[in-house]
Amino acid sequence: MNITELYFSPTGGTQKAADLFTQALAGQVQTVDLCDSRADFSAVSLSAEDLAVIAVPSYGGRVPAVAIQRLSAVHCNGAAAVLMVVYGNRAFEDTMVELEDAAKAAGFHVVAGVAAVAEHSIARQFAAGRPDAQDTAQLAAFAAQVQEKLAAGRTTEPAIPGNRPYKKAGGSGMVPKPTKDCASCGLCAQSCPVQAIDPANPQKVDSHACISCMRCVAVCPHGARKLNPVMLAAANTMLKKVCSDRKENELFL
């Protein structure tokens, strides 16, 4: 079986969870990075016999809009799809049902869904170190169940949780800014999924284009991009109550 892993993973947590799941499947794997603003996603083509693992983070209970736009360009030709939503130990709300609708609109046939936990991209003390060894074992077990379903020729659609209409999308308003340590190397601008950073002047950020994905913070070799400490402290306080207890991964088959 040929497997295509399509992931939108600005800080690496979503890709890590998707990799753990996909590596437990039997098949040849190719990866597609939906964060790459320079890629031609219309050049990606699957066949009806292929399996796609489509992995996105949950941003405030929704799918990042840019991930949906890029997914819609893929030629899926009726390929089966496993949806994976990765969240920072709070909740994934309407993310998976929105991803289901986007995958179906693109022409995929949804056969399973996975909700996985990874380190929170903004408040990194929540779900720190996840996915961990326990998650790895659980995701491998999920992969085995999906493989068993497909091998038995069962292609029924799972009951995906979420609401239609989806909850209102809202930006976090948390835009990382350069500090005095910025060397203007341009790696942040090169890596930004939505080109919100000026490559000619990386200290200039389009706050309206920024999706608060924290990729620039994650890739900066100088640790020179930071959030407003007051806003970060407020976010930490807000999330502490809902993120402190360990959430478990879920399979929808």
Rank of each mutant, 00 (worst) to 15 (best):
G170Y: 12
M214W: 01
T179I: 07
A118M: 01
I68V: 15
Q30S: 10
T31E: 15
S244Y: 07
A151T: 14
D198R: 03
N77P: 11
V111R: 04
P199I: 08
C220Q: 01
L46M: 08
A39F: 09
K167M: 12
Q69F: 06
A200Q: 15
A67W: 03
G186V: 03
S72H: 08
G13A: 13
M1F: 05
A152W: 03
V74W: 01
S72D: 11
I3P: 00
A73F: 05
C213D: 12
A137N: 05
A106E: 07
A123L: 04
T136W: 03
R215P: 02
K241Y: 00
G186D: 07
T156N: 11
P131F: 00
A218P: 03
S207K: 14
V53I: 13
P165C: 09
C220W: 05
V175H: 05
C243E: 00
H120I: 09
V111I: 15
I211A: 02
L232C: 12
A209H: 09
G61V: 07
A18T: 07
V217R: 00
Y59F: 15
L239C: 11
F142E: 09
L187F: 13
R38G: 10
G13S: 14
G27N: 10
C185R: 01
C76S: 15
V53D: 03
N77Q: 13
Q145M: 13
G107L: 03
A234L: 14
P131L: 02
G27F: 11
G223T: 10
A67Y: 03
I197V: 10
Q134Y: 02
I122L: 05
D135T: 00
P199L: 11
N228V: 03
A103K: 01
R246W: 07
L251M: 08
E148T: 15
A151P: 06
I68S: 01
L51F: 12
V219Q: 04
A80G: 13
V32W: 02
N163H: 15
C192V: 10
A235C: 09
V230R: 03
T237R: 14
S58H: 05
H208D: 15
C243W: 02
R225T: 01
A39N: 14
V82N: 12
G223M: 09
A81N: 08
D101R: 08
S172P: 04
L251T: 06
E98G: 02
V146K: 01
L251C: 07
C188P: 02
D40Q: 10
G129P: 02
T156V: 12
A65F: 03
F108C: 05
D19T: 12
F8A: 14
P57S: 10
C76T: 10
R130M: 01
L20Q: 11
M96G: 02
I211V: 15
T31F: 05
E157H: 10
S72T: 13
L71N: 01
P221W: 09
E119K: 00
R225Y: 11
Q28P: 05
A26K: 15
A112W: 11
R38D: 14
F108M: 07
Q23F: 08
R154P: 02
